[in-house]
């Protein structure tokens, strides 16, 4: 083995990592540029808002309902005796709005939406449908990527708003039925530490998660290689990477906006 071998592999590893990043940012930049092509993505926006947004509401609601119930029960379990029970309302509301609403919805939808986008675009890539779009003078980024990202950005806050509401409602119903609490107590706790910024924060998170999920899904789909297996790889990557990015972003927002 020649002595340059390790350096060679380190060097090419670094280069390929930067290369991949470059491709990704190139793709993101291309998406931004393609925003100008309103004529191409405009008519598709509503369709994707429906598919990414409206159709995701049931799963988001399902998720947040159970989250709300569990939060209420766990809060009362944790607070036994020492802390007034109305703090159950505080904990359910704050946790739901600030963290679990956006993050759990984001993670669930990275599976539903991100995987869906990656698989769909991946299939289009390997069956040359994206090339076909090109040959018919459609900018595939404007046609496929932009409406999906925009739809996700626009609809995620809405989905999360519904999720937050239902989660808190579920927490409230649990509190008055299972725990020995009154509606007044729950509402008192809920309103106690509420700040209008809480909702802004929740929405900022939701928007950024929507953006990340759609962008990663599109990127992975667009750069799928090979056949069905390639589509599988792209889908898995889309879910894993966007899931990780959601958590990283979550921490990022907490550091930048809550301090």
């Amino acid at each position: 083995m020649h002595w340059t071998r390790p350096f060679d592999s380190i060097g090419s590893g670094v280069l390929s990592a930067f290369g991949a990043l470059g491709v990704f940012f190139g793709f993101a930049a291309e998406s931004v540029r393609s925003l100008a092509d309103v004529g191409t993505w405009g008519p598709l926006l509503v369709l994707h808002m429906r598919r990414i947004g409206v159709d995701s509401i049931p799963i988001a609601l399902f998720l947040s309902t159970f989250t709300g119930i569990v939060l209420a029960l766990q809060a009362s379990y944790t607070f036994t005796g020492a802390i007034p029970l109305y703090f159950v309302g505080t904990l359910v509301g704050k946790t739901m709005i600030l963290e679990l609403g956006p993050v759990l919805t984001g993670l669930a939808l990275s599976g539903r939406v991100g995987a869906n986008i990656a698989a769909e675009l991946g299939t289009m890539r390997v069956s040359e449908q994206i090339d076909a779009l090109e040959t018919m003078a459609y900018n595939p980024v404007a046609y496929l990527v932009v409406p999906r990202i925009l739809a996700a950005i626009l609809m995620f806050p809405i989905i999360v708003a519904f999720g937050n509401t239902l989660g808190i409602t579920a927490g409230w119903i649990t509190s008055i039925n299972v725990l020995d609490m009154s509606t007044e107590q729950f509402v008192h706790g809920l309103q106690l530490f509420y700040k209008p910024f809480d909702i802004t924060y929740s929405m900022i998170k939701a928007t950024s998660f929507g953006f990340v999920i759609a962008l990663i899904g599109c990127f992975q789909g667009f750069h799928t290689q090979g056949g069905a297996e390639g589509v599988g790889v792209a889908t898995t990557r889309a879910v894993v990477i966007s899931g990780m990015l959601i958590l990283v972003l979550d921490a990022f927002w907490a550091f930048t906006l809550l301090q």
Partner: peptide, 14 residues
């Protein structure tokens, strides 16, 4: 490209 028709080997229908 609008002057060009491309018939794909595997059709590539949407």
């Amino acid at each position: 490209r609008l002057q060009m028709g491309y018939v794909f080997q595997f059709a590539a229908l949407f």
